[in-house]
């Protein structure tokens, strides 16, 4: 047991009376989730893993046999302490529907999500957006600018993504702290405009 774990750096522990808040940083493979979390985190980013059992249906299997596989889903996360005893946890999560059980667990009680997108393959973010909608998690879309990416006007991006007018769309460089912070500010501003959730 002892050999398996690494110890936290000095100053990592909290007082225990902070207000912890969870935000999901979702997006397709290689879009910049880890970079984003690392840019804003004030602890060295950590990783948690969950084993998920998936059963693929007959369409995947020519013989029609049930086919169960175990997948390890890794999420990296970071922590950002703010004034007023707030501690924001940022979870970089694969947003694809096949990670449903892990995403559902993560989305419960989460404040909202940033869905990262890359204009060279915008369509890779569409299932992630649908998944956030299905999970009832409000989100803002953050477009990361990659060097050779096409530069679409915002209106074209909104139309392509079928974004409701009130959903924020921000351009963000996940390597840059100010820019990454601004994307979160836009998300929280958006949350303040939403109607209250019904209390079950």
């Amino acid at each position: 047991m002892d050999s398996a774990h690494c110890d936290p750096a000095a100053g990592t522990h909290l007082g225990g009376d902070e207000t912890a808040i969870k935000v999901v940083i979702a997006g397709p493979f290689g879009v910049g989730k880890t970079t984003y979390v690392g840019t804003l985190s004030d602890i060295a980013p950590l990783r948690t893993e969950e084993v998920m059992t998936t059963a693929s249906v007959a369409s995947d299997d020519l013989r029609g046999l049930p086919n169960k596989t175990e997948t390890t889903v890794a999420m990296d996360f970071g922590r950002l302490s703010l004034a007023g005893g707030l501690v924001l946890y940022l979870f970089g999560a694969p947003g694809q529907p096949r990670f449903k059980s892990v995403l559902q667990d993560l989305a419960r009680g989460a404040l909202g999500a940033l869905v990262l997108a890359d204009t060279r393959r915008l369509e890779a973010s569409y299932p992630v957006m649908s998944e956030m909608e299905r999970l009832d998690l409000p989100y803002a879309v953050a477009v990361n600018r990659f060097p050779d990416a096409p530069d679409y006007p915002e209106a074209a991006l909104r139309e392509a993504m079928d974004l409701p007018a009130q959903t924020p769309l921000v351009v963000c460089d996940a390597r840059e702290r100010g820019s990454s912070r601004d994307a979160l500010v836009r998300l929280v501003e958006h949350l303040l405009t939403l109607d209250p959730e019904p209390i079950p």
Binding site: S56, M129, S130, A160, D162
Partner: peptide, 20 residues
Amino acid sequence: MNPPRRDRDRGLVRPYVVTE
């Protein structure tokens, strides 16, 4: 040039079943 359009796919049955 326009980016590829997104299809709203909320109603589709997905090809995976996840055991929760």
